[in-house]
Design a binder for these strands. Structure first.
Lengths: 211, 211
DNA sequence: GTCTATACGATGATAGAC
DNA sequence: GTCTATCATCGTATAGAC
């Protein structure tokens, strides 16, 4: 084992290149060259390019999802202890705050943030499916809590407003990655805590609708 | 000229395949085969695959953008005639309603909707750039109006809330295309006017924030 | 002017020898 | 674990038929 961490180096490099240039525009040759590994090493360690992508997702998404699931459970339990329904704003905060805090953390996580933000919109069904399978249970938990929080609203309305919120959040995750894109006026440095509060103000108000 | 509309057939087919499978996963061979045209026809009529994509965008985006720009101008003029600032909700409506109405129209437009919704999130910089160049002036017009509508808010807040709104809207455009993806509970048939009102309620409330 | 058939260079992922 | 060879497929270019 001359290179004990070849696997990890490939994962780090793939994460960065997938996020920067997209899955399809990133060749295995580019990944292995940048990681100082042989082209065939990917096939040996992961089995295929697709399996490599899945492992890139899984490595960070599994811990992050556990964190978010726990946050959501806390909100549900605290509401139950009070004998009330949870607050929509608390539910959204329990999901969004850990997500954006994670995405604004270490550089590797920032790449991951871009990648995840784009994966929800990924044109290629195979890439999208890999991601969706990892996120689906958490989404169900989130939707269920939002229904509990807003029993007076029609189910379709709860569903759509949650989708709007997720659309806003993932859009932000993408913007954090490739710096604006749509605008010169994009702020150079973004304070993650301020951004979290901006987003939570927006989605909480939006989820309640206009009085 | 045995096939007078080869060009149009290629455009229609490319629109559908790009939307369904993504730009990079769609080969020129697949497009020309489905369109009943020769491989070289793309190069003859458009010059390159990239130029074909640009024409797919341009064909529908130029008229749609003109429509939206006019709507926004109307809102600005009516507010000026009253000697007031425009309402944020009116500005958002002038932009969002024509967009979603267009996207829920004819089948071709629905494919286009998916494509546009994804293009904002496209990992590949070349694809993203082609789209962003076509949309940028309209975005500047929109941001400017939102600033007029909310002079009491910090510029950064106006900027972010508009981004959140666009994130929600484009997310919906993507969902309309590939039917939910994230959920079994996705409604089978969506009434575009109801959806427009749901979204406008959300982004208007969100843009005002919590009192 | 339009379209077709075919060829080219580059790059994709992977299998099998080492 | 590593490397080389291989083969499919990509976008593009060109020469010529209608």
């Amino acid at each position: 084992m001359s290179q004990p961490d070849t696997r990890e180096r490939i994962l780090d490099t793939a994460e960065e290149l997938f996020a920067t240039n997209g899955y399809h525009c990133t060749s295995l040759r580019a990944i292995t060259a940048a990681a100082g590994a042989n082209l065939a090493a990917v096939n040996y360690h992961f089995g295929s390019k697709e399996a490599l992508l899945e492992e890139v997702f899984r490595r960070r998404l599994v811990p992050l999802n556990a964190l978010r699931a726990e946050s959501l459970r806390d909100v549900a339990e605290q509401a139950a202890a009070r004998g009330e329904n949870p607050e929509a704003g608390d539910v959204l905060r329990a999901f969004i705050a850990p997500t954006l805090r994670f995405c604004c953390g270490e550089p590797g996580a920032r790449h991951f943030s871009t990648l995840v933000g784009r994966s929800m919109a990924e044109p290629d069904a195979t890439v999208r499916t890999i991601f969706l399978q990892l996120i689906q249970p958490l989404f169900e938990q989130l939707l269920s809590l939002m229904r509990d929080a807003q029993p007076e609203l029609p189910l379709a309305t709860v569903f759509w407003r949650l989708q709007f919120s997720l659309g806003a959040m993932t859009h932000v995750m993408r913007l954090l990655g490739h710096g604006g894109g749509l605008l010169q006026t994009f702020p150079e440095e973004v304070d993650s805590e301020i951004l979290i509060e901006e987003l939570l103000t927006f989605v909480t108000a939006g989820s309640k609708g206009i009085a």
